[in-house]
Nucleic acid binder design. Sequence first.
DNA 1: GAAATGGTTCGATGCTCGTCTAAATGATAC
DNA 2: GTATCATTTAGACGAGCATCGAACCATTTC
Lengths: 122, 122
Amino acid sequence: MTAATLESSTAAACCAPIAREPLGEGDAAELAALLKAVADPVRLRLLSMIGSHAGGEACVCDLTDAFDLTAPTISHHLKVLRTAELISGERRGTWVYYRIVPETVARLGALFAPLAEPAHRP
Amino acid sequence: MTAATLESSTAAACCAPIAREPLGEGDAAELAALLKAVADPVRLRLLSMIGSHAGGEACVCDLTDAFDLTAPTISHHLKVLRTAELISGERRGTWVYYRIVPETVARLGALFAPLAEPAHRP
DNA sequence: GAAATGGTTCGATGCTCGTCTAAATGATAC
DNA sequence: GTATCATTTAGACGAGCATCGAACCATTTC
């Protein structure tokens, strides 16, 4: 699935729009898990750093230096993001490089977009 | 500013505001607090119920009945959403009605939105 | 007023999560 | 093969959070 596919689906089928109809129990749990992965200052900054880094990928060594946290802690946060499929990591030689998964990030954006529209309901 | 904007995004394919530049420590903490308010299955369903309810507002009595939770718990979750300014409550007579605050929700949508509006960029 | 109904606040409890130190794994250089 | 740097895993501790029962405000009705 590409970013374009997701974009075209914001108004229609794919991802459950939060304002069209009440969220089911299962969908809510799944989305909450995804949101929980982003609902942390460190992980938010990590995501932003990786996404804004030149070339679209960032080395763990760069990320670790930017925080006042130990390497295991950063690794833990990266694992949470990876488990949520928000980022993907690849080892090339000594260092591991992380990259953003645009589809998952776009899914978050599409979640609240319908709600933001003023007067989407009569 | 619709499909053309997306087409213009290049190989990085990440045009979400969060990927424009690294998030500051203060902004990250503030956004994480906002996200944490939504990163819960119950609150997500509450938000969806309120947002999809006819007239744009929902009574607490309706919300409480939809869950297998006690009234204090629902009230707690509503308070979290209210503190985050995601919803606003108003008492009319016997019942309390909650309504969505579109500005705050829009902020969430804009964060990860694949179609970043030019006006929102700093 | 007094009673009844709708909502919120107050403590308490059990669980989850972020962080650390210590140890293990992976990869390169000598 | 051994030394060394980079990253992850394992285990443990403390803080925060979701949930509950009970007590507490607000509004209507008698």
